[in-house]
Amino acid sequence: MFDSVYAQLVGLCTGALLLTSALMVWRHTLLASIRLLSAQGLSLAALVAVIGVQENEVELLFVALLIVATKGVGLPWVLAHESEAGVRAIKEAPRLNPTASLLIVTILTILSYIVVSQLIGLGTSVTSHAAPIGLAMVLIGFLLLISRRRARSQLIGFLLLDNGIATIAFLTSGGVPILLEFAVSLDVLLVVVILYVFAGRMRTKFGGTDVDQLRELHD
């Protein structure tokens, strides 16, 4: 593969990652978020595959397949399957309005570029040049965790954060060992399944999963 093509492909994938992250903050319905998450998982898999082809590592191609299976198809399927149509259409009443959130996303992205360039230096390689995207995804995931009221929407934030960590890992060190990647993916899948079952139970029992309202149970 030509270097310029490689660089463009990496840029495309990471761009897709950042774009999906920003869109997740913007869109408020659960269904939209789930679709964006799926797209993001596929972009991550594409990124891994591109790196794998460039570095001639077959292992990374397997990892890419694994990511397609879990982050691209598995998790979104679980999320969509577990929530009924009524829930999927529910609009989130966010704690931040969309304009403010997008502004904060911009600031966070700039901050992550500054931080990463100071911390490790952007370097000359294509991948390390794109590393700030991963940090930006982590920060955006965190922002989602804070600004969303519903447990399921918070879960989306958590998954975005997890994707961000994976992105950083692949961009800076060519990924973690396949066994570890496998274990982490399964862990996340398990967490999501448990939380979803849990959230479903809570909804049938208390009629909602607004975390702020749930505090009244404790009082």
């Binding site: 704690r95 965190f142 804070i146 505090r215």
Partner: peptide
């Protein structure tokens, strides 16, 4: 006790 506050 608010999870949002702790996350913030």
């Amino acid at each position: 006790g608010s999870i949002h506050r702790y996350l913030t």
